[in-house]
């Protein structure tokens, strides 16, 4: 037992589980030679693969990259991209860029609130819908826009938004 846990060999560390998705994470870190600048990219890969970042993942990355835990947590909470909790089954990301704001993004948020009671950043209790916002994804030409389950939809108004959201709330 003691021989198999050398304190100075983090690179050979086993992933938290035998989930094959960890292989992709390991490949990313290896690609960067386990250098500290692999952190953001590695976190991104974990989130893409698992949907969010939990303590197990953060600890694994910190040890593999020989990095302080608090630094990893600091980075995760600095960037808007990273999530510490799993997102809902459906996500509605309303763009809050200037063009969308001028063209009534506020009304879109109100529409989602009306159908679901959700405020910005919240996920419904049944984990079905997450309401997120983002700072301008560059669809200003078709403002106001939102990303509904990964698809950009432009020139929205409240009633269309409501229709989209209702589809999620009724469907099983």
């Amino acid at each position: 037992m003691p021989s198999s846990s050398p304190i100075n060999a983090p690179h050979s560390m086993a992933p938290p589980t035998d989930d094959p998705r960890w292989r992709l994470v390991d490949t990313t870190m290896r690609h960067y030679g386990y250098a500290p600048n692999a952190l953001i990219e590695t976190l991104r890969i974990v989130q893409e693969s698992f949907g969010y970042l939990d303590a197990i993942a953060m600890k694994y990355i910190a040890r593999s990259l020989r990095m302080p835990l608090s630094k990893v947590y600091g980075v995760v909470t600095f960037y808007g991209l990273f999530r510490l909790k799993p997102p809902g089954e459906h996500t509605c990301t309303v763009c809050l860029g200037t063009a969308c704001y001028i063209k009534g993004a506020k009304n879109l948020l109100d529409a989602v609130k009306l159908c679901t009671g959700l405020l910005l950043g919240q996920t419904s209790a049944d984990n079905k819908i997450s309401l997120l916002s983002c700072r301008c994804f560059g669809a200003c030409g078709i403002a106001p826009a939102a990303i509904l389950d990964g698809q950009v939809i432009g020139n929205l108004n409240s009633s269309e938004m409501e229709k989209h959201i209702r589809k999620w709330t009724v469907s099983k």
Binding site: T98, A99, C136, G138, C140
Partner: peptide, 12 residues
């Protein structure tokens, strides 16, 4: 890292 809300030139 085009961050200005209302700008999408770099993206394009």
């Amino acid at each position: 890292d085009e961050g200005d809300p209302g700008a999408f030139m770099n993206r394009n």
